[in-house]
Amino acid sequence: MATVFTKIINGELPGRIVHSDDRVAAFLTIAPLNAGHTLVVPRAEVDEWTDLDPEVWSHAMTVAHTVGRALKRAFDAPRVGLIVAGFEVPHAHIHVFPAWSMSDFDFAKVQHDVPAADLDAAHQKLLTALR
């Protein structure tokens, strides 16, 4: 059965995609730590990042780097956080988000039920910064 991430990548579920190529896609999460929180997800449905093909992982990190630079500009953040956790969805992914302090890395503080308009605004802001 396809993961929720695969369904977003394939357009079966809605997603605010900011990057897509033949190896990875990047899209905003609906439960962000901060506005602009983006997931970089390999198309291959591999649960643990350590089991991914090293070339795919390297490419995912390159995309995360590009997204991170754009997040920093778009949200005027002093830092950009990067976390590989992988407990919430069994599909390897990289969390990339604007950060102002170490408390921004606390997944207990994710924002649930963010209004769609706020997610859309963050999506547009990031797309503009990626151009």
Rank of each mutant, 00 (worst) to 15 (best):
H37W: 14
H91S: 02
A92D: 01
V41G: 04
G86K: 02
F105K: 00
R73Q: 12
G36D: 00
L39T: 06
A64V: 08
L39H: 06
A35K: 09
D21Y: 12
N10R: 15
A35S: 15
T38K: 07
D21A: 14
L127P: 10
I94H: 06
A35Y: 02
E45G: 02
G81L: 00
T128Q: 15
Q124I: 06
F27L: 14
A77L: 15
S58I: 05
V63L: 11
V46K: 01
T29Y: 09
R43T: 08
R79P: 04
V40D: 07
V96N: 03
D106Y: 07
V80H: 05
V4E: 08
T62N: 15
V18A: 09
Q111Y: 06
P78T: 11
H112E: 15
V80S: 07
A117V: 11
G11R: 07
Q124T: 09
A108R: 11
L13H: 04
L126A: 05
I94P: 00
G68I: 08
E88T: 01
A77T: 15
K125H: 12
V89S: 01
V110I: 14
H65S: 06
A64E: 03
V46E: 03
V46T: 04
E55H: 12
P42G: 09
A25R: 08
F87P: 01
A60C: 15
L33D: 00
F87C: 01
A26P: 05
A2L: 11
P14E: 11
E48V: 10
M1P: 08
A92F: 00
L82R: 11
P98G: 11
K72L: 15
A77V: 15
V80T: 09
A44C: 10
A35I: 13
V41H: 05
F75C: 14
F105N: 02
E45H: 10
H91Y: 11
L126P: 04
H95L: 01
H37I: 04
R73F: 15
L126N: 03
P90F: 00
H123W: 04
A121V: 01
R16K: 14
